[in-house]
Simulated assay, not measured.
Amino acid sequence: MLSANYIEPGRIEARDDATRPAPGAGEVLVAVEACGICGSDLHMYRNDSYRESLVRSTPEGYDVPGHEFSGRIAELGEGVEGWDVGEAVVGVTGYGGGMAEFVTVPVNPFQLVRIPEGVSFAEAATTEPMADGLQMVRKAAVAPGENVMVIGVGIIGLGVIQALRTKVPDIGKIIAVDIHDRRLDMAKTVGATDGINPKKHDIFEEAARLCGRENDYRGESANIAVVFDCAGYIKHIPGPPPLEIALHCLANRGGRIICFGGYEDRMSIDFGYVIKKEPVIMGSNGYAAEELAESLELMRSGTVDRNILISHHFPLGEVSDAFEAQGTPEAVKVMIDIEQAAA
């Protein structure tokens, strides 16, 4: 079986001698057609972050990443009912394995869902990050007219913007923040009203110009009701961590911050804003099961276009080039396409 093998930061290869897995009880074997490179995969590729939860080891000792993928059911494990060989499905695993010709997936609504007619395998492989965005928007409970900021507009942040446009049609401003103009342009394409590149503008000053400046006994704010932190902490990017920027921009009362982006290390921030502004800070990890199915229905109906977010395609044999591409300014979502010659 052809599979990826993550070795160490900056090193990943394709192997053609991995053992094909067999489905256990309550599992199906999926013949993978497409697998996306997640932001967490990229954290791992940079400095080994989250490795223990992002790879699945083969009997040969190959560490296979990939937890958001699509394909067709190739085999049914013992006790599996209601599913058929050949069905097109989205699979999600919390422990990798998807960057291979075959991967086993437990049968439950959090990890296996059917792909509706008209949705491509590549588009379906973006289901999990879209569901993540739906959960973040649900947790934020954005009210009509409220201004929001999305820090980090890779595939997750862009999904948040698509979810906001779907769930809160009468929202105020949606301000996208990213160091890459390519991603800011895409953010506007899918619904952001404005974009801020911190390499060119001070985030707080630009947000205050767009949304209005508040200044009272709690301090100053840029009248942002909700900040979605999809960037986390990337050590090599200079300046205050995104969480500190979020706290500064956040409204002086009633503000919410939804934290999703990964953290490559510990960080130092000015936490005084938390005392002054009394914000609600929530983590978001994953999605509700129904949000997987909802994501696919949004694609099927044309309510959201996920295909435009896929910037690059690579075959599995070029997985090293795929990871390098995902780290470039031009990339939004890099998709690994897997030919099923061995199926």
Rank of each mutant, 00 (worst) to 15 (best):
A131E: 00
A143H: 13
N223F: 04
A124T: 01
G39L: 08
N108W: 04
T104C: 13
L42S: 11
G133E: 07
E128V: 08
I203N: 05
V80N: 03
G152Q: 04
H236S: 15
S268K: 15
R256F: 06
E78W: 07
C249I: 13
V148S: 01
G96T: 00
G61L: 09
V90H: 00
E13C: 00
I174V: 15
G97T: 04
H67V: 02
A18T: 10
I73L: 01
R20F: 10
I161R: 10
G26E: 03
P315V: 00
G77M: 08
P9T: 04
G172N: 15
V280W: 14
D17H: 04
E206I: 14
P21V: 09
M1A: 10
F271R: 15
A74P: 04
G262H: 07
P241A: 15
P241T: 14
D170Y: 12
T93P: 07
I73H: 01
D321G: 00
I115Y: 06
V150F: 02
M299L: 12
A225L: 04
I275M: 15
S49F: 06
I338T: 05
A322T: 05
Q135L: 12
A141V: 10
Y287T: 10
D84T: 02
A293S: 04
T127L: 02
G286T: 04
P240Y: 13
V304W: 00
V334Q: 06
I258M: 12
G232S: 12
A74Y: 04
A187M: 11
S53V: 12
A288T: 08
W83P: 03
I237S: 02
N215G: 10
P21H: 11
G159K: 01
V28K: 04
A246N: 04
A22C: 07
S311E: 01
G272C: 12
V226A: 06
E60F: 07
G317H: 00
S49G: 05
G255L: 13
S3D: 05
F228V: 05
V274F: 14
T104M: 08
S320F: 03
G302N: 09
G191V: 00
E324R: 14
